[in-house]
Structures are given as C-alpha cells and as structure tokens.
Nucleic acid binder design. Sequence first.
DNA 1: GGTTTCACTTGACCTGAATCAAGCGCCAAC
DNA 2: GTTGGCGCTTGATTCAGGTCAAGTGAAACC
Lengths: 223, 223
Amino acid sequence: MQKEALKRYDLFASMEDAQIDDMLAGMRVVPLDAGAFLFRQSDPAQRFFVLETGVIKLFRLSPDGDEKVIEVIKAGESFAEAVMFMEANRYPVNAQALEESRVLAFENRRFYHWVKTDSALALRLLGSLSRRMHALVKEIDELTLHNAGYRLVNYLLNEAGEDSDGDITLSAPKQVVASRLAIKPETLSRIMARLRGEGLIEVEGNHIRLIDREALRRWLEAA
Amino acid sequence: MQKEALKRYDLFASMEDAQIDDMLAGMRVVPLDAGAFLFRQSDPAQRFFVLETGVIKLFRLSPDGDEKVIEVIKAGESFAEAVMFMEANRYPVNAQALEESRVLAFENRRFYHWVKTDSALALRLLGSLSRRMHALVKEIDELTLHNAGYRLVNYLLNEAGEDSDGDITLSAPKQVVASRLAIKPETLSRIMARLRGEGLIEVEGNHIRLIDREALRRWLEAA
DNA sequence: GGTTTCACTTGACCTGAATCAAGCGCCAAC
DNA sequence: GTTGGCGCTTGATTCAGGTCAAGTGAAACC
C-alpha cells in the first residue's frame, strides 16, 4: 500500500506526503470473512477505518437481539472517524462484514495529531461530520414523519440517482435494507410486491429496475 | 455584552480575547416573542446562535404540517454551529421560540475564520459535533428498537439526572415533549396516567416527581 | 445428486399507537 | 364575572405494520 493509493480516499485526499507516510506507518490491513465482526458496540476505540473491498454493516442491537442497521459501508468509504473526538472513546455501533472484506485500520492518535496541526484537514472533517449529522436528522425526520412505503420508495429513488437509467443493484441483502429502513423483511416484501403490481418497478433478485420514476415520485406525495 | 459574559458559554470558553472581540463585533441580539420564528428550514444560514434566555424548539415539518421536534434548546446552549461547514449552507430545521426569548446571533464567516486559524477551537467543535452525532444515533436506536413507554420513561430518568431527588420541571409543554419523543399527546397522557396508576410518578402540571427510580428502571427492561 | 439451509415471499391474524371525538380545567381578555 | 381558547385527559374505534406460520426456490454442502 503506497501513498498514491491512500490519497484516492476522500478522507486523505488533502493530506501531505509526510502526513500520509505517518498514517501508513501505523496502518494495519484487516481481512474479514463474511459474517465476521470488525468491532462491537462499546468496544474501546483506538482506530478508525477505510473499507478497501467488500461491504460492512453498522448496526445497533436492542436488549432482546433485534437489530437496526444505521449504515451500510461500501468500498472506498471511511467510518468511525468521529469516535476519536468523544471523551468516551467507544464505538457506538457494531460493525460486521456482510461478505468477505478488506479493511484498512488507522491509528486515532496519529490522525488526531495531524488534525490538531493542520486546519485544512480539520475543516474537511468538520464538513464531513456536519453532512453526516444532517443525514441523521433527515433519517429521524423520515422515521417519524413518513410511513414504510415512503421510506422504501425514497430509498430506491436515491439509490438510482439522478443520471442513471433506473437500474439498482442492492448493496446488501433485502433484510439488511429492510433494517436500514426500519421495517420488517415481510413488510418490505409486501411493499415491493405492490409496487411491482402497479407496474412501477421490476424486481429480480437483488436487481431492481425503476420503470417510471415520475410516477414513483408522485407515489411519495400520496404515501 | 462584554467578553467575560461570552466566555461563560461553552462554545467560546477557550477563545482568546482578540477572537471574542471580533465575534462580538459581528454579534446581534435578537429578542423573540413567544411563538416567533428565529429561522425556518432551508433558509440560507449566515449566523449561528446562543440562547441567552428563554426556550426554543428545533423541529422538522412534514408536507402535511405534522411536526417532529428534534431538540429543545434551553438558556446557555448554542445551536446551528454545524451548518456553516456544509456546502448547502441552509438551516435543516425550523427554530421557534416557545416563550419570550433572547438570542445572540453570531456571524458564521468570523467564526469560520477563527476555527481555521485555531486548532484548539477546531478540536473543541469536532468534539461537540461528535457528541451530538452520537446522540442522534441513540435517538434513532430508541425510535426503532423501543416503544413509546420506554422512550418516555427513559426521557424522564435522563431529565431527573443521577444526583437530584427526582423532581422534574418540564422545559416545554407536554405536547412538545411528546413530539420530541415521537408520540402523540394523547399517548403521552395515557402512559403518564398508567405510571401514575402504578405509583411510579406524581404529576402536577409541568412538574413531575419520580417516586421510585429503581422501579422505573426495571419498567424499562420490561417495556 | 440429494438434502440442508437460508433468503425471500405470501397469507392470516394481532396489537400498539394513531385517530376521532368529547369533555374538563385554567388562564386571559373583555 | 363571563366567555373563549387552549392544553390536557379520557374513551371508542381504526389501521399500519408487526408477528406467526407455511411454502418456495436457489445456493451450498456432504
């Protein structure tokens, strides 16, 4: 793993060579089998991560074992960088690989040092945390002000993005998507069946095609 | 308003005199009648705020007018500091005074400048954003993994804190508390009635006394 | 190649909380 | 003092989505 590769990740994009070298010195590569945990909720946090390949889910557990997926991490994304700035210094979620994955693990203390001495890096981080906070506020909004159908259709429209031709390949099994949207797999299945019945989407395994996005957007207003 | 007063607020506690002077130069005092809006969702954001006196609710609106209170701001607390680090630069919530209030409004651009040149300040901010993010994750957890009764009792236990003798004075009308917890006023009323019936709390207007906190904690496990 | 496993689907039923609808105090305005 | 409005409570009813149960199909394993 050399400097150039690291710089391709957003988090490190603006860092100097000397800084990158230092981060590399403390880096560990963590290979994970499907199903393996990277860390668990309330584990002490010495490191933050970049996902090189694979898929990882971040989730919370209720006392009786129900889980709520907070985020699905895809290749190239970083996670758990915020933990180093909290006094508790414990991961607030569980991280489990959904398939075979490779994670780069960096030391908090080195990164903290560079954030302290490089204000551009600090501002970059502040920006990314703010964005994430906003996303969480929007999620609370959706959970409380909108129903299951809305959340699913909204999710599908977001996944498809503006430009593409409406083809989505789910980055995680449907049950994980369901948990991400705070609905039960059965309910997700039913809503999909309904959308299929109304000719709005086509479903084949983990591949979904949005047939009429305008109609789906109208569907949102109603639901 | 002089330097010393400002330094008493957390956000400014670590700032130099020169920095504080600069912030003061751009400060405006905003008096608000009960019910007045300080800003609305998606307004462009040039300023962030400290609440000097009064109470303000931050909330999101659904298309058909339902509201979800995200946070109730009490005297001495700051809010909307994160917005300046997002590219959109628009408030993601509405801010409305629940009673007559006085707000100090500071210029984002001045503060941004100081954050850029003072890493201690940047770290302080990173810490506070991280904490707020964690709180949001916990709220999502509660919304999805726990029922209305749990959320209310949990809220009451938190409001009371560890040390005090179990007396709570609600900082906002019950309907606002209900929205904060994502339940309807009727439901809140019913749960309170039940807790009262079981001899766990006493209610008199906006004053609540927790009679048996151990029992309430046990109640959480069951609910 | 047969069987186990596991993700997903579909149907029948149940339930927590929302909705709808009165009614009750309490403060404010006149 | 009376009246109107508003926050809150309480009861009856409804409904979205959860639970429970059974079935299907495809990949995985011996």
